[in-house]
């Protein structure tokens, strides 16, 4: 099992993903610089980490999709390889057309950093046997409001591609922190539901000392899925 974490200039949660994979879950993990044109041989999982790739001065993720390494990431996904886009990584996946729709400015117009509750909507490579579970994960973004046209939303629902939905945690906070359509927090894509993009940060909630270990479940599921291939 080999996981790789892509480092774009401006990625800043690359260490978070590396730590969760390498130190918490115990997976062999390597960083891959954006200028590379190929992934290390035998890469099973590619993580596009959170951050502000290329400064995100244009639309978030709009520049990163042109990075050298992205062709290899796309080829990996097309082969059915696992790809996880977290926060800025989710934004990059939508900008690259690997997931449909777009992530726009939060309805509240501010950066929002807090815990949210999300319900797992379907089983998949990152959510094996987790359907129906509610997970506690932190968010930290200003552009996380999922948007897509009506036909796309209808397709996402029909094909059961909505992976996570924001739900009320009963803590007095708004369940949906950013105004995402259909309360969408994460989406599956790829030929075999092998690509996942989500705004919450599972890699920042993979240990009890950080307040929640729920995020570890996603990585453990991915490890099982990779080993089963």
């Amino acid at each position: 099992m080999l996981a790789t974490v892509i480092q774009f200039p401006g990625s800043n949660a690359d260490f978070d993903a590396y730590h969760a994979l390498a130190h918490v879950v115990g997976v062999r993990t390597e960083y891959v610089f954006h200028k590379e044109s190929s992934l290390p041989a035998h890469t099973d999982l590619v993580v596009l980490p959170g951050g502000f790739s290329y400064g995100d001065y244009l639309r978030c993720g709009a520049v990163a999709r042109f990075a050298n390494v992205m062709a290899a990431v796309r080829a990996h996904a097309d082969r059915g390889g696992l790809v996880l886009g977290i926060c800025n990584g989710f934004q990059i996946l939508t900008e690259a057309g690997m997931l449909p729709g777009a992530l726009t400015r939060n309805a509240g117009l501010r950066f929002e950093c807090r815990d949210v509750s999300v319900r797992v909507e379907v089983d998949g490579a990152f959510t094996e046997q987790l359907r129906g579970r509610t997970l506690r994960l932190p968010i930290a973004h200003a552009e996380g409001r999922y948007h897509a046209d009506a036909a796309t939303l209808e397709r996402l629902e029909r094909e059961r591609l909505v992976a996570f939905r924001y739900v009320d945690a009963g803590d007095g906070e708004a369940a949906n922190p950013n105004g995402s359509l259909h309360d969408i927090a994460g989406l599956y894509g790829g030929p075999k539901r092998n690509v996942l993009g989500l705004m919450p940060h599972p890699e920042r909630a993979a240990e009890p000392i950080l307040g929640s270990a729920d995020g570890r479940l996603l990585f453990q599921s991915a490890v099982r899925a990779a080993l089963a291939r």
């Binding site: 800043n12 949660a13 260490f15 978070d16 969760a20 929002e112 950093c113 890699e203 920042r204 950080l210």
Partner: peptide, 12 residues
Amino acid sequence: RQYDHLVRDGTV
């Protein structure tokens, strides 16, 4: 809440 107070997985 407007500050990312969690990045780097260190905020205990």
